[in-house]
Design a protein around this nucleic acid. Structure first.
Length: 728
DNA sequence: TACAGTCGGGG
DNA sequence: GTGTACGACTGTA
């Protein structure tokens, strides 16, 4: 018998039986261990059907242990009678698929659960958990103890070997000539793509010598790894991308799906075994929060690192709920079917609204304080114990046992608060600072998504009534905050879901807001913080009707000089960088005015800056990539009923055999050509003389108007003097 | 003018 | 493998 202490790098089903565990030991060894692992799932239904299923299970080849049992379905008051099926982890997905095909009418429980979650429920494991393990000479684990928890803020760190794999240029802009292979110290090699055999040999040598734990690529999912795999096959070369020789690399297909009212495109994925492949271009989490964020997300969701890097926070929070359910012996339904309960008309009025949204007072304001509730909705869920099983408001607070959702959220919220507090007192140079920031940003997404998930009808533990309870409590809290502020002599300029903007004569310093913040926290039981005090802030009217305010169109500058803007052109992803940058720069110039008196001067400065930009545009001196419009395709080309610019650009691409799927972005320029646009991904770039500058001036004019309007200033873009200055 | 198409939002 | 809202706004016909 041997034993070791180490960190769990990866966990997946063995091809034969049980699970494979990869351990990075304290002494730096990489161990591949196996552990027998039996899993359980269950079916419910009419007794005769369960008897038939019992017979069927007895007569099929996969070994199973069957028993009658009872379980708790969160959505039912009575216990459910079950036929529970115990089988080996490696066989369960196949057995479930076959059983489900033979008995589609039964209710399935705990049937489609990630292996890592099942393991976590039993052994308290999670990615990078520190473990103490006993195993025999054949590498079979006999005991496993986890020594730390995902909720520790400073776990003993594991030292991982990281290898980066990029191309010399971004393949989106030009065809790459070589691959760059380098470690974290930026030491590495450049391998020419022109010589595949030499490329493979060079890479194999590095992989063997360095034996990385994590392979971080740019476009490894969509291009580099598929390319390497294909070349290896063609040349009969054995490239050690994988660490586990018994497991083949798997490719998960690309797909498009709906999320948040948009169609989203997910590229294909390449997963390795025993080594982790992370594609930084195919992971929102990686782009947002870096490797630290990816690892942190895996730790708290218990999803495998390669999976957690590529999934949405919705999947993450859902996994956490499933884990809570498993640990508390609550059945996890498959294909949750649930209808909204009938409500009276009166109930509809109180329930069926979202967050509280006010009409802001249009125009320019000075010394405005913005107060934000911290993680308002998740806090409400925990504080009021809102969960699918405790969601009716007449039940609110009456449950003594915390529900599934609060139980899941509590440790996450607590850890985020702990980290945020620590961040406040740490210097940015502290080694923990970066990790804490990444972790906080990661948890933020998990927490935010949890609320939406509560109201999603296909979520395993969603229930629309819980969703509505949360928004109702949120509205109440915001109204309480409003009353509190008014009681203390503040004027409310605006309220929006979890934030309010207030002013009061003589209040212009953060410390003056302390009593108000304390009073609101006291009266609502929720944490609220000062986002900042604006030197000035402009709430914008609707373009259609200048008398009507729009709840989320504003821009302003805080006392520290940082600017904040919502809903204006620069926030939109479909504006060309030229317009976005110019608009932001204009706001910054106006922001440099420390007092209303200095504004006149700043406005003049802003106008001069603007005239220069316009001149450069007309002279064709703005680089083409500053003029690219990027839009998300919402459908197939044939499904477009009217030829939008994006559709016309897509048509151009398709005519040269390039395709874009719904959810992918298409980039184009406004041109003076027949279509009025030119797709950026065509081999030919347009000449500057073909650019439709009036179209860009129109976009710019609009963005400029947005910024200058609150200052009652209306510049025209044509100014001969500035134009001539640029000509010289 | 009506309808089609795109975007943001939370922190 | 997991949020098909909702309203502001612009473009097309």
């Amino acid at each position: 018998m041997r034993d070791c202490t180490g960190w769990l790098l990866d966990l997946y089903p063995d091809s034969e039986a049980g699970v494979v565990l990869w351990i990075v030991t304290q002494t730096g060894k990489r161990l591949r261990l196996r552990q027998p692992f039996t899993v359980e799932f269950a079916i419910a239904g009419p007794a005769p059907r369960l008897r038939s299923a019992w017979q069927w299970l007895r007569n099929q080849p996969i070994p199973v242990k069957l028993e009658r049992s009872q379980g708790r379905d969160l959505f039912l008051t009575e216990p459910v009678t079950l036929l529970s099926i115990h089988t080996d982890a490696a066989c369960q997905p196949r057995l479930f698929a076959q059983l489900c095909k033979a008995f589609p009418d039964l209710d399935y429980y705990n049937a489609d659960i990630q292996l890592s979650l099942r393991h976590a429920a039993l052994f308290d494991t999670f990615p990078l958990a520190r473990c103490e393990i006993e195993y025999d000479a054949a590498g079979t684990v006999s005991s496993l103890h986890v020594l730390d928890s995902p909720w520790e803020t400073d776990p003993q760190a594991v030292s991982l070997r990281i290898l980066n794999l990029d191309s010399d240029v971004d393949p989106q802009y030009a065809p790459p000539q070589s691959l760059l292979v380098y470690d974290d110290a930026q030491m590495g090699e450049e391998l020419a793509l022109a010589h595949p055999q030499k490329l493979l040999e060079g890479l194999a040598e590095i992989l063997t010598a360095y034996d990385p734990d994590i392979l971080i690529t740019a476009y490894g999912d969509s291009w580099i790894l598929p390319y390497l795999i294909q070349k290896s096959a063609e040349l009969h070369f054995s490239l050690p991308l994988n660490r586990d020789p018994e497991h083949r690399i798997i490719r998960k297909n690309e797909r498009s799906y709906f999320s948040y009212g948009h169609i989203v495109f997910n590229n294909q994925q390449i997963h390795l075994f025993g080594r982790l492949h992370l594609d930084k271009k195919n992971s929102f989490l990686f782009k947002d929060c870096g490797l630290e964020g990816v690892l942190e997300s895996a730790r708290v969701t218990t999803l495998p690192i390669q999976t957690s890097a590529r999934t949405s926070p919705g999947t993450g929070i859902s996994s956490m709920q499933v884990l809570t359910a498993l640990r508390n012996h609550i059945l996890v339904p498959w294909h949750k079917q649930q209808v909204e309960q009938v409500k009276t008309a009166a109930e509809m009025i109180t329930y069926d609204q979202g967050g509280l949204v006010y009409q802001p007072k249009i125009g320019l304001h000075h010394n405005v304080a913005e107060l934000d509730f911290i993680s308002m909705y998740p806090s409400v869920m925990v504080k009021c114990n809102i969960s699918p099983e405790t969601s009716r408001p007449d039940h609110l607070g009456s449950e003594t046992e915390p529900g599934l959702v609060p139980l899941t959220l509590k440790p996450l919220l607590d850890k985020r608060v702990k980290i945020k507090l620590a961040l406040g007192s740490l210097p940015p140079t502290d080694p923990r600072y970066k990790r804490y920031q990444a972790a906080s940003a990661t948890y933020k997404w998990l927490l935010v998504t949890c609320f939406g998930y509560l109201g999603y009808k296909n979520a395993k533990f969603g229930r629309i009534e819980s969703h509505e309870s949360v928004t109702m409590m949120g509205r109440e809290a915001l109204l309480t905050a409003k009353e509190t502020a008014e009681d203390m002599g503040y004027e409310i300029l605006h309220m929006y879901v979890d934030a309010l903007w207030v002013i009061k004569d003589g209040v212009s310093r953060p410390d003056q807001l302390g009593p108000l913040l304390d009073a609101i926290s006291e009266r609502t039981g929720l944490s609220i913080a000062l986002d900042g005090i604006y030197r000035w802030l402009a709430f914008l009217p609707s373009r259609a009707d200048k008398r009507v305010a729009v709840p989320n169109r504003y821009f302003g500058v805080f006392q520290d000089g940082s600017i904040k803007f919502r809903g204006i052109e620069a926030r939109r992803g479909d504006m060309p960088p030229f317009v976005t940058d110019t608009q932001i720069e204009l706001v910054k110039i106006l922001a440099s005015a420390k007092s209303p008196a200095q504004l006149t001067y700043s406005i003049q400065q802003a106008e001069r800056f603007l005239q220069q930009k316009v001149s450069l545009l007309r002279l064709g001196q703005i680089p083409l990539n500053q003029l690219i419009i990027s839009q998300r395709l919402s459908r197939e080309l044939s499904a477009y009923k009217s030829p939008s610019p994006a559709a016309r650009a897509l048509k151009q691409l398709q005519s040269i055999g390039q395709d874009k799927r719904p959810g992918q972005k298409i980039r184009f320029l406004y041109t003076l050509t027949h279509d009025g646009v030119q797709a950026w991904d065509l081999p030919e770039k347009p000449l500057h003389s073909q650019i439709d500058t009036t179209e860009y001036e129109k976009l710019l004019q609009r963005a400029v108007q947005t910024v200058f309007d609150p200052f009652a200033y209306h510049p025209s873009l044509v100014k001969e003097t500035a134009y001539q200055e640029c000509l010289c």
